[in-house]
Write a protein that binds this DNA or RNA. Structure first.
Lengths: 154, 154
DNA sequence: GCTTCATGTAACTTTAAATGATACGTGAGT
DNA sequence: ACTCACGTATCATTTAAAGTTACATGAAGC
């Protein structure tokens, strides 16, 4: 399959949203991402169901973040996306009859599980507000503006 | 893409080889794996280049393991396969102009790198002889036979 | 030497999943 | 009513692994 960039993509969207006060349309967000509005809606659908964002139809509609940035972790977002596969590798057969393959599955499986667990743990430790601060720190000469913006988001 | 099961597959092949003294043909190995001989050769090609296995053509030809089992780690095998992608997830763009995306890449990237490093570390700690012993331990009532076999492999 | 066996590879097909695009329905403002 | 924007189904595109076919090469046995 293609490399999965949904988490990366939706984070990009959310951080753009965090830098603007009002609702933003899929159209606008899609342009910033150089993609299609439908892709944006698809990514956001899961987040809406989890209550992380809200959407409004019609004039002046669009997407807004519906929870404090410091109460949204990457793990929340990952789960809202439907917990996509983390590893590109896996066992050939899930429930093999062959004992050799069972041994291979057991050995690889535990290593795989550890790596997945580590990544999920890291995801749980990172909040959107931290990422937003990272972005602000990278903005040359815009420090005050960012601070003002963040004031009524957190 | 499909889930990558090359490491799982080639381990299965190697452990089957470890349980038989002489060379084994791609044909035989493919039957044990329920796949095609060409797939077996493709998997083994990289291992041959690294000197982990040898192949002989013609009558009584086939594949043999060319290094002591306790000197072959999963990491060696992973590298011989061409170091396939470990993570199914990745950043949307590698060198983005957008600062927001750069911040996302930095945050996700370090988490991704940690998980990959952990998995590779685990791979480096597991040898084929350990896996072979695991298989032996799972064989009911064949303990002596396995022990004899292992005697002239390690 | 000739045949057979087995690897070595190239080329093509199939499969699976994300991404991209089009079309149309629904509901909220104006 | 009309327009804006989301909601969603459907189809096309892309990417890479896995499976298949075909044929060349080289070694062993006769």
């Amino acid at each position: 399959m293609k490399r999965d960039s949904r988490l990366s993509g939706v984070l990009h969207i959310l951080l753009h949203m965090a830098r603007q006060p009002g609702p933003q349309t899929s159209e606008t967000l899609a342009r910033a991402m150089e993609t299609n509005p439908v892709v944006v809606r698809r990514l956001m659908a899961g987040l809406r169901e989890r209550g992380l964002v809200r959407s409004e139809k019609g004039h002046r509609g669009g997407w807004i973040i519906a929870r404090e940035l410091d109460r949204i972790t990457l793990r929340d977002i990952y789960e809202a996306l439907g917990e996509p596969e983390i590893l590109a590798m896996g066992n050939r057969t899930e429930a093999p009859g062959c004992l050799v393959e069972q041994a291979v599955n057991a050995a690889l499986g535990s290593a795989f599980d550890e790596a997945e667990a580590l990544l999920l743990r890291r995801f749980g430790e990172v909040t959107l507000s931290q990422l937003s601060a990272d972005v602000a720190a990278m903005m040359p000469g815009a420090a005050e503006a960012i601070t003002l913006e963040n004031a009524h988001e957190a």
